[in-house]
Design a protein around this nucleic acid. Structure first.
Lengths: 127, 127
DNA sequence: GTAGGAGCTGGAGTGCACTCCAGGTCAACC
DNA sequence: GGTTGACCTGGAGTGCACTCCAGCTCCTAC
């Protein structure tokens, strides 16, 4: 099964421009081309794009994704290095989640605080 | 208690340049000045900065923080609007956490996958 | 055979959030 | 009274990750 760039964009959630941009900067291998010179993405290509978007969602910078892509390109010998990268990245994602959760507590507190103000305000009116 | 810009930077975790930048764009009110024209931050100023950095950490864009700052400036009458903003923002932070957690699962899976490759590799060598 | 639509290229432009700089002031210490 | 160091201003520059554009080529459908 192959996909046009528009289909690849739709399935990956990236824009057509972003797909070409990722190719330019070496994040994805140049896909095959049809007889007219148009890109045809394979299922493998889409799988890689799906993984990339996960890394992106978790805040991995492009230069690190590129490093990962280059290691991947060099084959099984680099599996250890890649695993190490994911391992470290996972730790940073966990830290990020913890950070967000701690901020959530502050938000909860603030929102509660506003509710108290509202109650006071209403009491002030009805009193 | 008042603080120089360097002290405010240290306590807020923002850079001196960022403090001045935030002031320029209306995120923070211009602090008091000493006799020499230097900024002197109050505890209240630092409290607001601490809250701002929470909002920033949770990914609130500056234009939204500015909107919040402007509402805050207009006093108690805008408390409802502000609470609503925080409420919506909290929802987006929760969604973001959920998104990260779902990506974590993918990372876990990938890392496990690499561990399997390593085991296979070792077996391949020792076999 | 031509009009329309998808895709192509190289390169320029955008938005965000800072970050840096030159050239100056001011207070304090030696 | 001169040097040092912190701070001041307005404005320019940076890095990231796209996003847009002009001008072109193909294929398809009428």
């Amino acid at each position: 099964m192959t996909y046009s760039i528009a289909q690849a964009a739709e399935r990956s959630g990236l824009s057509i421009d972003t797909l070409r941009y990722y190719e330019r900067i070496g994040l994805v291998d140049p896909p095959a081309r049809d007889s007219g010179g148009r890109r045809t993405y394979s299922d493998d290509d889409l799988g890689w794009l799906a993984f990339l978007t996960r890394l992106r969602t978790t805040g991995m910078p492009i230069r690190m994704m590129r490093e990962y892509a280059q290691l991947r390109h060099r084959g099984a010998a680099t599996a250890g290095r890649r695993k190490q990268m994911l391992f470290e990245h996972r730790a940073s994602v966990r830290a990020r989640i913890a950070e967000l959760q701690s901020c959530l507590e502050v938000l909860d507190y603030k929102i509660t605080h506003y509710e108290q103000i509202e109650h006071t305000f209403i009491e002030g009116i009805t009193a």
